[in-house]
């Protein structure tokens, strides 16, 4: 009887350990070409945002500098930087879609975006803490050389929308 219990416990333990490794074994999605402008526009239309005036920053170099992103890391497309960034004037909401030059550059771009989100958390914690939950559950995704970040009024919907667009 004791041996039976020991065997069952061992099997259960192995199953739990195997399950915990499941996330580690996740393979990255294969890289594709994405239309970042179309993706950002779709997210803007489909995902709920608290700010009805969420707007695209037309000056792309300026948009990158506001996110602390080195423009040298970002690919060029049709004579301008390959990025589509929507920002809010009143809330920390954002849609960020950037095509970096390569995967290594994409990792650095994502670091800058995440650092900015951390700064927003610090700024908003003291004065409008109800915005902090949005920032803490921000959607961030890197696919090959592409970097995406969304802070919205429903980040779960944002994550699903992005997943659907990226395939």
């Amino acid at each position: 009887m004791k041996n039976t219990i020991r065997i069952i416990a061992s099997v259960l333990l192995i199953a739990v350990i195997a399950a915990s490794f499941a996330a580690c074994g996740k393979k990255p999605a294969p890289a594709k070409d994405y239309d970042i402008n179309a993706i950002a526009e779709t997210i803007h239309k489909e995902v709920p945002f608290e700010d009805p005036y969420l707007a695209l920053v037309e000056n792309r170099e300026f948009a990158l500098s506001t996110y602390g992103v080195d423009p040298a890391l970002v690919a060029d497309e049709n004579g301008q930087k390959a990025c589509s960034i929507f920002v809010s004037g009143a809330y920390p909401e954002m849609i960020v879609a950037i095509k970096a030059k390569d995967e290594a550059s994409a990792a650095k771009v994502m670091d800058s975006v995440k650092a900015l989100i951390e700064t927003y958390i610090k700024n908003y914690t003291t004065y409008t803490p109800e915005q902090v939950a949005k920032l803490e559950s921000a959607v961030t995704e890197t696919r090959g050389a592409y970097v995406f970040a969304i802070v919205s009024n429903d980040n779960s919907a944002a994550a699903n929308c992005l997943k659907g667009l990226l395939g």
Partner: peptide, 17 residues
């Protein structure tokens, strides 16, 4: 504490729970 308290773990997905 002037901060939002943690939501129920099964309700943290916004519209997707």
């Amino acid at each position: 504490e002037f901060r939002s308290l943690q939501e129920f773990p099964w309700k943290t997905g916004g519209s997707n729970n």
